[in-house]
Each structure stands twice: as structure tokens, then as C-alpha cells.
Design a binder for these strands. Structure first.
Length: 981
RNA sequence: GCGAAAGUGGCGGAAUUGGUAUACGCACUGGACUUAGAAUCCAGCGGAGUAAUCCAUGGGGGUUCAAGUCCCCCCUUUCGCACCA
């Protein structure tokens, strides 16, 4: 019953949603036509949802932000693309299927249906015609096409490697998907497993991915820093050490990587990873062998190290700079998958080396002196590096003469002297001819020397690893590869795509993916030789789908690709036929290649060789445009449309994707560019990362029992209220603390707007203000007699219009816009009260909506017609400003007040000058910087006048009895005066 | 350990360029209306103090006529990376 006194949101919201959807109000063309041609484009995108069942508060927040921006841009006259879809492959579907003994597809598509209804109830301005469901074969066939093309370019490859394994999800994970040694999805402990896996060669793009970060001005620094760290570029020196085993001299060499070549003379041992290929060869004692086995075993199960451990191999390496014999250790802290898996250890200048050396009692030699220690180093520095040009010949000669027994002058740091290593840069000591150089110079001098002498080379290393995309699960995009006994791993013919995911599978929840047991799927024939072959049964990581969906949105339909183009959709039945002709058309030619080199891919030329374990290698022509002439190159998007809309102008989503999705998508855009599909370098021009929605300080989750279901709130208060609160309670980048009482506050505010609009409905209905500006131009004195209080309100409105526009374009602090609107609405209420000497109240009646009493009192109000014009302008403006946040109620109120156009086409409010001048202002009076009083003064007075006025003030008089005591005063015009005594 | 962000009433937060700290909202207190409650409306609301006044933007210094804002040191919290050589 109480609800009756409030506005009927369900009626109003339904009305507008129907209008928007039935009228295709948010439909956009691939390429703008007619009047839209003159508009500037704006592509607004929120990260699409995984259809987990129902939408949650995080979605509501994300989409409310996106919708606010999209609608604002529409008001500003942009041609706005605002699409939505579903990222529908993934594990939860499969887990649900196992639990319910159904097919994941059923579960997923049912969820999509539910969520679509929910999203529509929120009144979001999506072009639903562009909806993408990534588990539709019409979507993922393109992904398979990309995969094949990447494979042909060597950007997709299969490799036996140690990968992250999640036993609970029963699949492998990419490095980006491991958080603190745990699975990003289920929090299960990750183990290491050796498996044959498909990788995408993101490392080929490491340098570009890093360099382009500098151009992403519209991205938060936080995300850029995270990506930069993740890519982890470091420049250093690769050095080759000859191995000198105890008994015999060998030709074996050990390659190490260091970023501190300047400390080479301080190296006292080498350390290699237990998983290093040479590890076992170097072992000389039984004891070492046993210990090494243990280290290997430990490194195989986990990457976590609790304590540094190692064992001396019994072998030595020769430091090529001073011929010093260095013991080689196997050490658990040396990572196999970074650099070369071997390091030179300089305990005096590295924390880890130091800790290890202390534990195993290894010599420590200081070779870099802290620059503050000037007494020792300044002389040497002056002597040797008087000029910065490193003179090769001179130094080289010196070095040859001195190097063999440089130890004469070496200072050993014994235990008592050195408590901790000095890891900074400084001046070289104990380093033969390099003594006196500062670290920076020494790095390049020593590197150059190593290169010149042929025992080293400068290299750049990245922490970024190739993206492992194989998943041993069913509900994902099938990898379009078959394994032929003769030909090895062969991609499907492009025109046989899609390779559909079979639906006749059984879920047991045990062991491997159902695909791996489905013979009708596995058994097939080779697209090259027509012989027997087996399909790849791994599916792709779901992050592949989300790496390019934003590009697919730009075209409503596929580009010139129809079902009739498919021949022999090879799903399931595997009658082998002769497909050799197809192979020729694909320009794939097989060659015999018995070289052992099976991992290097030549990216510079157009021809790539790969060899598989069965000895069958083939040559691939990279020119993808050179396929079957009857079969034109296909694309999921119209290149023109893609290039028109992309990049995404504003992307909005959770910060948790900073190094997963957001890095993969950047990589994919570069690949698609290089494959000829797109001509952009970066997918997302501006990025807004929103915070989480939390309750009682914790992330909402079923296990914590603090989940708030948006649906309940929408039913209770309407979606405008829910949207408003999620934008008002915090700025978007911060976490949002959910507060049920706060939601009521937002509801109250919307009711307040509605009530005051109803009050003025009859009064303003027939006032048409669409050409208010013209009226003013024609009649300069239009507002001359207008109520001064209305002019005051308008003056404040002008400030809000300006401020809101700036916020909507840059900072997105919607909360501040909303609060100024609240203030203004409160002012209108005050105005009403003053004018009518009465409060706005409701009459108890069964009529629901229009029951607000309008009481005109004694004085005849609104004497002048211009009052109405100005008041209506104020109302319309505030409704337009709020429209991006609460579109239903604003549309409704705009309509109630009467207009020949609807709110969407009204445009962003204009600033109307009424000739209003603020006459007086309040000025703060400080004495010695402390606030002592406030005075009211005419505007724009000069300092002396303000000072005089201040001195007349009662409170100020108390402090200043004698004018001569004033030393000086500082005046900030119309704001503040500070009197110094 | 490294890197980043942040710390303002009981709470969410405002103060974009150094210029009246605590806007707006929530909660709370009192009042009006009501048989009563809900809703609505009005008023109050950083702390101490009867008051004058004093103290308050994590703590301590500094620059300045003036610091939440700038500089230095420290503390705490959150996030990211974590033996990356």
C-alpha cells in the first residue's frame, strides 16, 4: 500500500523499455547512413558477461557505468555503438553438466535467456541485433580460422612443456591464470605437469606490447604498470662459460644470463636449475646425484620454494674474463623457464646469491663499491674513465696482460665484514682494467668485450611466456588440428570450418574430457593425404573468444560467408576421402626434413618449416590471400565497418582482467592486423577499471552469505534506483560498499524528482522551449523581469551543466554529478515552498500517480511568462543530465512536462544566460591564516574595501584594536581575505 | 622483499588549479502528521566546552600569508608481482 504514494516504476520502466526495444532505438548500422554520416562515431563497450545463471551486482555496476557513458555520448550527438553478448564457453557449464547430467549447452543457453531478460529489465541501451554468443559455431568458426592462420605463420605451435595443472578443474592453465600458486577460478593449489600443449606466440609481440603501453594515454597507470611488469623486459648479457670437469677438459659450454655484467669479476660460483638439461651431465659424486634427484622431484611438483637448497656438482666452469675456476652448483632457486636456466652468482652484490653463498660457505668478492664511499674510488675513476669512450684496444691489451692473475689485488669480503650484499650500482673495484668505471659504463664495456672476444652476446629477456591455450575440457572451441600418421599435425581446410563441438557426449566427471573418449569425433581423415588421422581433443582457452569479440560486434553479419560454402562438414563421420587436391589449393607442400631443429620458427621470411616428432615436416606458404581462387578470403567482419568502429573508444570492466584478458586482446589485435583483417594497433583507446561491489567489507559471495540479488531490488525499487545507487555510492574505480538503506535514499531522490515534476506538470506542459536560444536572441530582454530566485537557480544549473560535461568525458565521477543534481532539486523544492508557502504533500487516495496537490496561494505567482520558460529549461536540463543514469524516469518526466521531441534527441543542455549577476558574496576573513569571521560584501570589490569592511566586523574588532598593527593582507577576490598582524 | 594506490565525521564519500574542510547521501536525535506504525515533511548532527574558545583530514617535521592538497621521514590498509638473475 505504501508504494502507492510513490511513483509506479514498474509501469514507467516497462513503458520505456518497450519503446526502446520495439522501436529499435539503439540500432546502429555497420556504416552510418543518411544524417548519421555527419556524426562522429563512439564505440562504448563493457566486458561481456559469462552466463553463469543470473546477473549480479558487479554486472549491474559495470553496465550502469557503460550505459551512462553511451547515453551521454548519444546526447552529445555521437553515433554510438553499444553492443552486448555472452562469453559462453567455460568450465562452470561443464561442472553444472556433470552435476545435473545434462549437456553444458543446455545449461548455458538457458542462462543466457534468463540474463538477457534481466539485462533488458535494466533498460540498457544495447543494440541487441549485434548479440554474440561465443559458443555458437557461427562465432567460433572464425576463431578456428584464425588459429589455422596463426598455425601457418608459426604463431600457434605445439610443444611438450611443463605447464600449470589444476587438479580440481582437471585442466592446464596459462601463467596469467595462476594467482599466488592457485587456480584463478577455483583457488585450488596448482601443480606442475609435463604435457604436449598448444601455445600462441605472444612473445613475438612482447616488445610491441610493451612499447605501445606508452601510447595508451586513456588507460589507468595501474593497469599499464601491471602489464609492464608482467612482460618483464630485461636487458643483459648472455655469457658462455667453458666447463672444466674434475677429470677431463671438455668442449661443453654453459650459457648464463645476467643483467649485471659489471659484477663479472665478483662471480664465485655458477648455479643452474635442477631441470637444466646439463644438470645430470655435470654430476660427479653419488651424493650429488641423489641430492639432485630430490631437487628435481621437488621442482617438478611445485614452483614454490621455502628455502634455498643446492648441491655442488663436482664440476667447474672457467670465468672467461679472468680464467678463474668457479664451482657449479645445482640450485633450487634458479628458474628453468627464465633466461637460460643458469646464472653466474655474485654473492657480494645479489641477495639470493649472498644467502646461498653464506649457507654453503662460498667465497664472497666485492667488486662494486658504493659511490658514497668516494675516498676509495674517485682516484681510480679519474684515472681510467676520463672519457666515456671505451677504448677497445687499450683496455683489451691491458686486460690480456693482467687478467690471468688479477687476484693479487682482490679484496675478499669475509663474514665479519659483509652482513648484507650491496645490490646498487657503484664504482668497480677488484675488476682488473675495469676498475674505476661506474656500473653503467662497466656494463657496456664488459658486454662489448665479451662480444668482441666471442664468449658472450647482449640479449633481451622477457618474463612473458607464450600463451598456453590447450584445455583438457569439453566445453570450449575445438582446436582445428588433426594428427595424421604420415603428415603429423595438420590443420583442417579453412572451408571445412566450423569444426563443431559434438553434442552426443557423456559426462562422468571423471578423468579426461569426454571429447577424448568420443571415437566418432576423434577418428577422421587427413585433410592433406586423405589417410587415417585423429583429431586434437583439447579445446581452446576461453580467453581466446574474448580476445576478439569486440571486433566481431562491428559487423552484424559475417562477410560473404554462407552455409553453402561449407563442404563436408566433417563433424563426426569419418569416411576418408581423397582430399589431396584441397591440400594443393591451400599451398601446403610437404617435404622431408630430418633436421633436429624442431622448435625454431623463422619469422622473417615467408616460408616456415616445422617438423614433428614423426619426422614429417611441411612447408607453408604464408600468403593467406593466395588460397583457392573460388574461395575468397573470409572474414567475420566487414573490414570497412571494423576499421570505422575500432578501436573501442571506451572500454569498461573489472581490474581483475588487467593482465589476462586485456593483454590477450591487445595481442590478438596485433595478430589480426598482421593477418590483414584489421588496421589498428590497439583494441581499447580508453579503459575504465571499475572496483568490486562489496558488502560488509567483503566481496559478495555465496559462501559469505552477503550476496544481494539485483532482481530483488529491481522488483522492489525499479532499475533506475538500482542503477542510481550503484553510480552514486562511490566513484567507479573504487570498491563500492553495498548499503540497503542507501538504496532507499536513491529511491527517495527519484520520487522527489517525480513529485516536483507532477506539481509543475500543468503549469509547464504547454511551454515549448526547444528554441529558447532563439527567443533570447530575438529579445535581449527576455528574462529581464524573470523571478530573481529562478535566475539564481539557473545560475547554479549552469555550473552543473559545465561540471557534469567535464566529468562525463574524463573522470567519470558520476557521484559528484548526482550530488549536485540533488542539491539543485532541493533548491527547486525550497523555491516551491517559498512561492507557495506550503510543502509538497500527498493526498491519501487509491489513485496511484497523479495525486500530488498543487496549491496556489495568496499571491499570484509567476507573473511573467518568462518564469515558465526558465523553470522549464531548468527542469529539462536536470532531467537530461540525469538521463544517462536513470533513463526511464527522466524520459517519463520529460514527456510529462511536454515537448515536441523526446529526451534522447534533446541534446546536452545549453547554458542560458539570463543577465543574472551575483550582487553580493560571502567573504571569509582570516587573521594570521585562521578563520575568524565571515562578511557579506558586494561583488568585485577591491582589497582595500574588503579590508575596511572586515575591520568593521564585530568579531574582527576583537582581534584588531589598532589598524597600525596590520602588517599586510592577502585578498583572494570574492572569496577570502587574510589579515596578518 | 619489489611495485602501485589509498588513509577525511558513526558510515559511503565531497573539496579537479594550495584559498571558508566535512558538499551530497546514509545512519542517528528531536518535532509535525497519525489511534498507532510506515511513509512523508521540518529542524539538528565532527570532537571537547555553560560560553568565550580550543582541537580535528593516519603520525611527525618542513615550505607558505594560507596545506586534506606541495616536500621529507614514519605508520597502517588494500591491490599486483614475488627468488625473473
Amino acid at each position: 500500500m505504501e508504494q502507492e504514494k510513490n511513483y509506479d516504476f514498474s509501469l514507467i520502466e516497462k513503458k520505456w523499455q518497450d519503446k526502446w526495444l520495439n522501436g529499435n532505438d539503439y540500432y546502429v548500422d555497420d556504416m552510418p547512413i543518411d544524417s548519421n554520416k555527419n556524426k562522429e562515431k563512439f564505440y562504448c563497450l563493457e566486458m561481456f558477461p559469462y552466463p553463469s545463471g543470473r546477473i549480479h551486482m558487479g554486472h549491474v555496476r559495470n553496465y550502469s557505468i557503460g550505459d551512462a557513458i553511451a547515453r551521454f555520448k548519444g546526447l552529445k550527438g555521437y553515433y554510438v555503438l553499444h553492443p552486448i553478448g555472452f562469453d559462453s564457453f567455460g568450465l562452470p557449464a561443464e561442472n553444472a553438466a556433470i552435476k545435473n547430467k545434462t549437456n553444458p549447452k543446455e545449461w548455458t543457453y538457458k542462462n543466457i535467456e534468463t540474463m538477457e531478460v534481466q539485462l533488458k529489465k535494466l533498460g540498457l541501451s544495447y543494440d541487441w541485433d549485434r548479440k554474440i554468443i561465443t559458443s555458437d559455431s557461427s562465432y567460433y568458426k572464425w576463431e578456428q580460422l584464425f588459429f589455422i592462420q596463426m598455425f601457418k605463420k608459426g604463431l600457434a605451435y605445439k610443444k611438450l612443456s611443463r605447464v600449470n595443472w589444476c587438479e580440481s578443474c582437471h585442466t592446464t592453465l596459462a601463467n596469467e591464470q595462476v594467482e599466488n600458486g592457485k587456480c584463478w577460478r577455483c583457488d585450488n593449489e596448482i601443480t606442475v605437469k609435463s604435457m604436449d600443449q598448444w601455445f600462441l606466440k605472444i612473445t613475438d609481440y612482447a616488445e610491441e606490447l610493451l612499447a605501445e603501453l606508452d601510447n595508451l594515454d586513456g588507460w589507468p597507470d595501474k593497469v599499464k604498470i601491471m602489464q609492464k611488469n608482467w612482460i618483464g623486459k630485461s636487458e643483459g648479457l648472455s655469457l658462455f662459460f667453458k666447463i672444466d670437469t674434475a677429470s677431463e677438459k671438455t668442449d661443453l659450454e654453459l650459457e648464463i644470463f645476467t643483467t649485471r655484467p659489471d659484477t663479472i669479476f665478483g662471480a664465485t660460483y655458477l648455479a643452474i636449475s635442477p631441470l637444466h638439461t646439463l644438470a645430470k651431465n655435470l654430476l660427479k659424486t653419488e651424493n650429488a646425484k641423489i641430492k639432485t634427484e630430490e631437487l628435481i622431484r621437488k621442482s617438478l611438483i611445485s614452483k614454490e620454494i621455502t628455502e634455498k637448497e643446492g648441491v655442488f656438482t663436482g664440476s667447474y666452469a672457467i670465468n672467461p674474463f679472468n680464467m678463474k675456476k668457479l664451482p657449479i652448483y645445482i640450485a633450487n632457486f634458479v628458474l628453468m623457464d627464465y633466461g637460460t636456466g643458469a646464472i653466474m652468482s655474485v654473492p657480494a652484490h645479489d641477495e639470493r646469491d649472498f644467502e646461498f653463498a653464506k649457507k654453503y660457505n662460498i667465497e664472497i668478492i666485492e667488486v662494486v663499491s658504493n659511490q658514497n664511499d668516494a675516498a676509495v674510488s674517485s682516484n681510480a675513476f679519474n684515472n681510467i674513465s676520463g672519457n666515456n669512450d671505451y677504448n677497445h684496444n687499450v683496455i683489451n691489451n691491458n686486460y690480456n696482460n693482467k687478467s690471468l692473475n688479477g687476484e693479487g689485488s682482490v679484496k675478499l669480503a669475509n663474514d665479519s665484514e659483509l652482513i648484507s650484499p650491496f645490490t646498487g650500482e657503484g664504482i668497480l673495484i677488484n675488476s682488473s682494467v675495469f676498475n674505476g668505471l661506474i656500473s653503467k659504463e662497466a656494463k657496456s664495456a664488459i658486454s662489448l668485450e665479451a662480444e668482441k672476444m666471442g664468449f658472450g652476446k647482449r640479449v633481451t629477456n622477457y618474463r612473458l611466456k607464450d600463451w598456453g591455450i590447450s584445455r583438457q575440457r569439453y566445453w570450449g572451441c575445438p582446436i582445428p588440428i588433426v594428427y595424421c600418421e604420415k603428415c603429423g599435425a595438420v590443420p583442417l581446410n579453412e572451408k571445412d570450418l566450423p569444426l563443431e563441438l559434438p553434442e552426443n557426449v557423456v559426462f562422468t566427471g571423471e578423468g579426461e574430457s569426454p571429447l577424448a573418449r568420443l571415437d566418432s569425433f576423434i577418428d577422421t581423415c587427413c585433410p592433406v593425404c586423405g589417410g587415417k588421422a585423429k583429431r586434437e581433443t583439447d579445446t581452446m582457452d576461453t580467453f581466446v573468444e574474448s580476445s576478439w569479440y569486440y571486433a566481431k560486434y562491428t559487423s552484424k553479419s559475417d562477410n560473404a560467408f554462407t552455409e553453402s560454402d561449407f563442404t563436408n562438414n566433417s563433424n563426426g563421420n569419418s569416411k576418408c576421402n581423397n582430399k589431396n587436391k584441397d591440400a594443393d589449393k591451400e599451398n601446403i607442400k610437404f617435404i622431408n626434413n630430418n633436421s633436429d631443429n624442431n622448435s625454431n620458427i623463422n619469422n622473417s621470411g615467408s616460408v616456415v618449416y616445422r617438423k614433428y616428432s614423426n619426422g614429417c615436416a611441411y612447408e607453408i606458404n604464408n600468403n593467406i590471400n593466395n588460397a583457392d581462387p573460388a574461395y575468397t578470403i573470409q572474414s567475420p567482419f566487414d573490414k570497412k565497418a571494423a576499421n570505422y568502429w575500432l578501436p573501442v573508444d571506451q572500454y569498461i570492466g573489472g581490474v581483475e582482467h588487467a593482465v589476462m584478458h586485456l593483454l590477450y586482446a591487445r595481442f590478438f589485435v596485433k595478430v589480426l592486423r598482421d593477418l590483414g583483417y584489421l588496421n589498428i594497433n590497439e583494441p581499447f583507446k580508453n579503459l575504465l577499471t571499475q572496483g568490486m561491489v562489496v558488502k560488509n567489507g567483503a566481496k559478495m559471495s555465496k559462501s559469505k552469505g552477503n550476496v544481494v540479488d539485483p532482481d530483488d531490488l529491481i522488483n522492489k525499487y525499479g532499475s533506475d534506483t538500482v542503477r542510481l545507487f550503484s553510480l552514486f555510492a562511490a566513484p567507479p574505480e573504487k570498491d563500492l560498499e553495498w548499503n540497503d538503506k542507501g538504496v532507499e535514499g536513491s529511491y527517495r531522490f527519484i520520487n522527489k524528482i517525480y513529485k516536483i515534476v507532477m506539481v509543475y506538470e500543468k503549469y509547464l506542459q504547454n511551454i515549448e522551449i526547444n528554441n529558447l536560444k532563439n527567443l533570447i536572441v530575438l529579445n535581449q530582454n527576455f528574462f529581464e523581469k524573470t523571478d530573481i530566485e529562478l535566475k539564481e537557480i539557473n545560475n547554479e544549473l549552469n555550473g552543473i551543466i559545465k561540471k557534469s560535461e567535464a566529468e562525463m568525458e574524463e573522470r567519470f565521477h558520476f557521484n559528484t554529478i548526482i550530488s549536485s543534481c540533488m542539491e539543485l532539486v532541493n533548491k527547486i523544492y525550497d523555491y516551491y515552498r517559498k512561492q507557495n508557502n506550503i510543502n509538497i504533500e500527498t493526498i491519501d487516495t487509491d489513485d496511484t500517480i497523479k495525486t500530488f496537490k498543487i496549491e496556489q496561494t495568496q499571491k499570484q505567482k509567476y507573473e511573467y511568462e518568462s518564469d515558465k520558460y526558465l523553470l522549464k529549461h531548468i527542469f529539462n536540463s536536470i532531467l537530461i543530465i540525469l538521463y544517462p543514469f536513470i533513463p526511464h524516469i527522466c524520459s517519463e518526466c520529460f514527456e510529462i512536462l511536454g515537448s515536441s521531441i523526446n529526451i534522447e534527441s534533446a541534446g546536452w543542455p545549453e547554458i542560458i544566460a539570463t543577465g543574472y549577476k551575483i550582487e553580493a558574496c560571502s567573504i571569509a576573513v582570516q587573521i594570521n591564516g585562521k578563520l575568524r569571521s565571515q562578511i557579506t560584501a558586494n561583488i568585485d570589490l577591491e582589497q582595500q574595501d574588503i579590508l575596511n569592511l572586515s575591520l568593521e566586523d564585530k568579531k574582527i574588532k576583537k582581534y584588531i584594536d589598532n589598524i597600525s598593527a596590520i602588517k599586510k593582507s592577502i585578498y583572494i577576490k570574492n572569496k577570502l581575505i587574510n589579515i596578518i598582524i
